[in-house]
């Protein structure tokens, strides 16, 4: 689905992402883990169009998408969420969701005044869709709340909901579980799994919570210092020496056991 070839991203003298090649299979939930500063979010930003990579190529379904703008990628079904949830704080949850689909005829001034029936019909359709998304995510009780008043976890659900308003092919989740309480995290995990199984979404997620990763992701990709370190199932990764080293620091296991 997504293929990345020799991707480099350089900021001044710093190599944030170095020679990364990987592919994400259609229908998978791929986890992307690694210590802080490993280049995970930079890689996401390159794929999702926020940065243009220094060199290398990115393909979506064998079509090159390197350097396309975020809204162009949105139109192709490549969506992302943010590490810090983004929302339209002065609109309600339902209005936030209804904002997502593009090219609505109600956006044209002429149609608003001259073709109210067509606009209303379209709005009904989108409202129904938004309501079904709200129900799916179990946030019916806050549907008419201003999005700015939601808790951090509910905002993350709203972000996920936004991807459901259009037919996404692949969704990049940037630390969707960070700062979310356990109950909401379960709801979130269920939603991701159901979207994956029932709607055929492909996910790629950056995550620090290993339980969450273990529950959802296969395969898991590990990055460290801008490079790809390992790839495999969560069991492979957990027992991989390089990975443990990257997380805990080098030379740890050669040191003598501290005497108690």
């Amino acid at each position: 689905m997504i293929r990345i070839e020799n991707l480099h991203m350089q900021f001044g003298g710093i190599h944030a992402v170095e020679n990364v090649s990987l592919s994400i299979e259609k229908g998978s939930i791929t986890g992307l883990i690694g210590p802080n500063g490993a280049g995970k979010t930079t890689l996401f930003n390159c794929i999702a169009g926020a940065y243009t990579p220094t060199s290398g190529k990115i393909y979506l379904d064998d079509e090159e998408i390197t350097g396309l703008k975020p809204h162009e990628l949105f139109a192709r079904g490549l969506l992302r969420t943010f590490q810090i949830a983004q929302e339209f704080s002065t609109l309600t949850v339902r209005e936030n969701l209804m904002m997502v689909p593009g090219d609505q005829c109600g956006e044209s001034l002429i149609d608003t005044w001259l073709r109210p029936a067509k606009v209303r019909e379209e709005e009904e359709r989108i409202r129904a869709k938004a309501d079904s998304v709200i129900e799916f995510l179990e946030i019916t009780h806050v549907a008419d709340e201003l999005a700015g008043n939601l808790s951090g976890g509910q905002k993350k659900l709203l972000e996920l909901g936004r991807t459901m308003m259009v037919d996404a092919k692949i969704v990049f989740l940037d630390e969707v579980g960070a700062g979310v309480n356990r109950t909401l995290l379960n709801t979130l995990g269920d939603a991701i799994q159901r979207l994956n199984k029932e709607h055929g979404y492909t996910f790629c997620m950056i995550e620090h919570d290993m339980d969450f990763v273990g529950r959802l992701c296969d395969p898991v990709i590990v990055m460290a210092e801008g490079e790809l370190l390992a790839e495999g199932t969560i069991e492979d990764i957990k027992s991989n020496e390089h990975v443990i080293e990257a997380y805990l620091g080098t030379g740890l296991k050669n040191k003598p056991e501290p005497k108690s």
Partner: peptide
């Protein structure tokens, strides 16, 4: 007006 970046990422022209 609220969130320009997000608006660009949604279907707003």
């Amino acid at each position: 007006s609220d969130n320009e970046d997000l608006a660009r990422l949604s279907g707003i022209n």
